[in-house]
Amino acid sequence: TVKFKYKGEEKQVDISKIKKVWRVGKMISFTYDEGGGKTGRGAVSEKDAPKELLQ
Score class of each variant (00 low, 15 high):
23 R>G: 03
8 G>Q: 04
29 S>H: 15
38 K>G: 07
37 G>M: 04
39 T>D: 07
3 K>C: 09
18 I>S: 00
51 K>D: 12
27 M>V: 12
53 L>N: 01
43 A>P: 00
13 V>C: 05
5 K>A: 07
41 R>P: 01
39 T>F: 12
35 G>N: 04
9 E>C: 06
37 G>H: 04
14 D>L: 14
29 S>N: 15
26 K>M: 12
41 R>K: 10
20 K>R: 12
8 G>M: 04
21 V>M: 06
51 K>F: 14
22 W>P: 00
21 V>H: 04
44 V>Y: 02
20 K>M: 12
24 V>Q: 13
24 V>Y: 11
48 D>G: 07
23 R>S: 05
1 T>I: 15
20 K>E: 11
18 I>T: 02
49 A>P: 02
12 Q>I: 15
46 E>P: 07
21 V>Y: 05
20 K>Q: 11
36 G>T: 07
14 D>Q: 13
55 Q>E: 14
50 P>T: 05
22 W>E: 03
52 E>G: 09
36 G>S: 11
44 V>E: 00
9 E>A: 12
36 G>M: 11
53 L>A: 01
8 G>S: 05
48 D>S: 09
20 K>F: 09
37 G>D: 06
46 E>D: 09
28 I>V: 08
41 R>T: 10
16 S>V: 10
23 R>C: 04
3 K>D: 05
51 K>V: 14
54 L>R: 08
3 K>W: 09
35 G>E: 08
34 E>C: 07
17 K>G: 04
39 T>P: 05
41 R>Q: 10
18 I>E: 00
14 D>V: 07
8 G>A: 05
29 S>Y: 15
5 K>M: 15
9 E>S: 09
31 T>V: 10
37 G>Q: 04
40 G>F: 07
41 R>G: 03
45 S>A: 14
23 R>D: 01
43 A>F: 15
39 T>I: 15
5 K>Q: 12
8 G>H: 05
49 A>H: 01
41 R>N: 08
50 P>K: 02
9 E>T: 10
2 V>L: 14
29 S>M: 13
30 F>E: 00
27 M>W: 14
37 G>P: 03
10 E>N: 12
26 K>Y: 14
46 E>M: 12
33 D>N: 05
25 G>S: 04
23 R>E: 02
55 Q>N: 13
18 I>M: 05
5 K>G: 05
54 L>H: 05
18 I>R: 00
35 G>D: 09
49 A>V: 05
15 I>W: 04
13 V>E: 01
30 F>D: 00
22 W>H: 04
43 A>Q: 15
30 F>M: 01
34 E>N: 07
26 K>T: 15
12 Q>D: 07
3 K>P: 03
1 T>F: 15
55 Q>T: 12
25 G>E: 03
1 T>Y: 14
39 T>R: 08
38 K>T: 08
3 K>N: 11
9 E>I: 15
4 F>S: 03
5 K>T: 14
52 E>W: 15
29 S>I: 13
32 Y>V: 02
35 G>V: 08
49 A>S: 05
35 G>M: 06
32 Y>S: 00
44 V>F: 03
40 G>W: 05
48 D>I: 10
20 K>D: 09
11 K>G: 03
7 K>S: 06
47 K>I: 12
13 V>Y: 02
43 A>V: 13
15 I>P: 03
2 V>I: 13
21 V>A: 10
7 K>C: 11
26 K>I: 12
38 K>Q: 10
24 V>A: 11
45 S>M: 10
32 Y>Q: 00
10 E>S: 11
17 K>Q: 14
53 L>M: 07
26 K>E: 14
7 K>R: 13
9 E>P: 02
23 R>W: 11
18 I>C: 02
53 L>E: 01
16 S>F: 08
34 E>G: 07
48 D>E: 12
33 D>A: 06
5 K>Y: 15
9 E>F: 10
54 L>D: 02
55 Q>M: 15
39 T>Q: 08
15 I>V: 09
